[in-house]
């Protein structure tokens, strides 16, 4: 009971501090901008710990953060091989293949107006479908190992990527195209000097969306069958054994990997599209 009250008290204190910070004079500084969400996150974690201990929740319902941290620290090798199997092979492999294929297809589609008008609606339609459902089929075709997971990822990232790149290649003004025409520029010159650079913000938007999809695809596809390694495999078997600390450990890894993946793409985006209004500082 004391722990529960402590949790509530902690919340009250944190919230008071945050309200002060957010409405204080130094609210605009980057330190405060970082501090406020950090404080919020840490308080939530602490409350989680206190509530779990206070209510003596069994591990099969909700393990405390300390238990999860212990599990992450204690299962390094297992988590690493799972990470290698699911993220490095399945997600990244599929991501690379899918994005490259979408890029080449987009260039091809863009060349012919007829193809673009036909493929774009179909592509946007497919992009809105729950493609992760193809996982059982692809597992059947490509086996239990990472190849089938990569195939699911390829399918998942291909269409959002295609739609974004094709839309990006269209994102030039009449004036910009006229300018290239007054230079009597060839098709390829127009593509490389105008349309590809102009498409960069769209391409990165697609790459960012796809980075999240790739993680989801690789993990969920393992629910349909996998070798005895992989993050999705570990999650589904640990759930079966009610070893929820292991499940949470894998989720921590997945969250870190997912945001790191996204962060890297966003960083490259900042480097390459510094000129875009949304990126200028």
């Amino acid at each position: 009971m004391i722990l529960i009250i402590a949790a509530l008290a902690l919340w009250a204190i944190m919230w008071t501090v945050n309200v002060r910070l957010a409405n204080g004079e130094s609210a605009g500084t980057s330190t405060v901008r970082l501090l406020v969400p950090l404080l919020f996150g840490l308080t939530l974690l602490a409350m989680w710990e206190l509530v779990v201990r206070g209510l003596e929740l069994p591990i099969v319902i909700l393990p405390a953060p300390s238990v999860i941290a212990e599990r992450v620290a204690g299962s390094g090798p297992t988590l690493w091989v799972d990470f290698k199997q699911t993220f490095l092979k399945g997600a990244l492999g599929g991501y690379a293949i899918g994005c490259t294929a979408a890029f080449l297809t987009a260039i091809l589609v863009d060349r012919w107006d007829f193809l673009r008008r036909g493929l774009l609606p179909v592509g946007s339609f497919v992009a809105a479908l729950p493609i992760v459902g193809t996982a059982p089929i692809l597992v059947m075709w490509y086996g239990f190992d990472w190849h089938s997971k990569a195939a699911v990822v390829v399918l998942m990232v291909f269409f959002p990527m295609l739609v974004n790149i094709v839309a990006g290649l269209q994102d030039t003004t009449q004036m910009q195209r006229d300018l290239m025409k007054t230079y009597a520029a060839s098709y390829w010159q127009g593509l490389f000097k105008l349309r590809l650079p102009a498409a960069m913000p769209f391409i990165f938007n697609g790459l960012k969306i796809s980075s999240t999809l790739a993680m989801i695809g690789a993990i969920v596809a393992e629910f349909f069958g996998s070798p005895i390694v992989g993050m999705g495999f570990r999650i589904s078997t640990s759930v079966g054994q009610l070893a929820l600390d292991m499940v949470w450990a894998e989720i921590v890894v997945a969250a870190l990997a997912g945001s790191a993946f996204y962060g890297v793409v966003a960083l490259i985006e900042r480097r390459l599209t510094f000129w875009h209004p949304s990126q200028r500082r």
Binding site: I216, I219, V220, G258
Partner: peptide, 14 residues
């Protein structure tokens, strides 16, 4: 940016 879907099985079981 996080594959939230990964926690789906756990929610069901818990």
């Amino acid at each position: 940016t996080i594959p939230i879907l990964a926690i789906a099985p756990m929610i069901i079981v818990v």
